[in-house]
């Protein structure tokens, strides 16, 4: 070989030399749609908690996650100090519903709005990822985020209870019912939140839309139920509570399927009420997903 060997540099040569090795082709493995969609979901989930984003993007999610932990911490302290339970499992999400709603409103628009606003969507669609993978990954990320927000304090509380060793058997059934409720809440809230947020490319508008929807639902539910109770229409009042999504999931999953005590301020409809609540919940999820898919079909054709 006539090439001068780079292994023996002459004494005067600079120590570090950048060699232009030219363009290199990639012939390593290429994964399919599945792992790419999973990577998108993980990327989005990290982003929801502000990981991989500037420090200011971490403040709200971690602050709210910290607030979610407070009842669990207080309850563990109460159990250890005075042998009393401060918070139950199934009522956890209902008590903390405002925090969950704020988290949803603050973070759901992040998952969808920037890609629409800055028109990144065509870059995804020109790759193996399909529209359905994209929507699925975004929904999965938001669902897992909402689930983590509830499951971490609930599990901490349960572990705390086991460690403190309260008199009587551990309330495992209640814990499991609350975890099922957490899954129900996470799926329903994530679907509605992402669907509503996807209709505007502006993040601020998305935040306002989601939070107003929650305030509207909980307000209407409270006012209608109170009016009905005042006029002695207790059946109608029970149905009115279901307008609030947190009470709907409580009625459908925790009370309906697991037979827990209702955590709302009033009773839920009985008899046909349980299957009806489950149907409404599944219907809302289906409606949100359909709206999302239609929205993205339109966005993709631009």
């Amino acid at each position: 070989m006539s090439d001068p060997s780079p292994a023996t540099p002459s004494p005067g040569a600079p120590a570090g030399v950048i060699h232009d090795i030219g363009y290199r082709h990639y012939d390593g493995p290429r994964t399919g749609r599945g792992p790419a969609a999973a990577a998108l979901a993980v990327h989005t989930l990290r982003g929801v908690f502000g990981l991989g984003r500037p420090a200011r993007a971490k403040i709200i999610p971690f602050l709210l996650a910290g607030v979610m932990m407070l009842p669990a911490v207080v309850s563990i302290a109460a159990m250890a100090a005075i042998q009393q339970r401060a918070t139950g499992y199934t009522e956890y999400a209902v008590i903390m519903q405002a925090v969950l709603a704020i988290f949803l409103a603050a973070q759901a628009p992040y998952t969808v709005a920037p890609d629409l606003r800055f028109r990144v969507l065509p870059l995804y669609l020109s790759r193996p990822v399909t529209l359905r993978d994209y929507v699925g990954a975004k929904l999965a990320a938001m669902t897992v985020a909402m689930l983590l927000l509830q499951a971490v304090p609930l599990t901490t509380l349960f572990i705390g209870e086991l460690v403190v060793d309260m008199p009587g058997p551990p309330r495992t059934a209640e814990y499991l019912a609350s975890m099922a409720g957490a899954v129900g809440n996470a799926v329903l809230l994530a679907c509605i939140g992402v669907a509503v947020a996807s209709f505007t490319p502006r993040r601020g508008l998305g935040v306002a839309a989601v939070i107003s929807l929650y305030l509207l639902a909980s307000g209407v539910s409270g006012v209608v139920a109170a009016t009905m109770e005042a006029t002695n229409h207790y059946d109608a009042a029970a149905w009115a509570w279901l307008i609030n999504p947190f009470f709907l999931v409580d009625a459908a999953v925790q009370v309906g399927i697991f037979g827990a005590e209702p955590s709302g301020p009033g009773a839920y409809p009985t008899g046909i009420g349980v299957p009806a609540a489950i149907t409404i919940m599944l219907g809302l999820i289906a409606l949100s997903v359909t709206a999302l898919v239609i929205r993205y079909r339109k966005a993709a054709s631009r």
């Binding site: 990639y26 390593g28 994964t31 792992p35 998108l40 790759r127 193996p128 990822v129």
Partner: peptide
């Protein structure tokens, strides 16, 4: 860098690649 790495993954490249 972040943007290009992310889109490379969307094209099916493993993380390090």
């Amino acid at each position: 860098t972040e943007f290009t790495v992310h889109l490379a993954r969307m094209s099916g490249l493993p993380r390090t690649a």
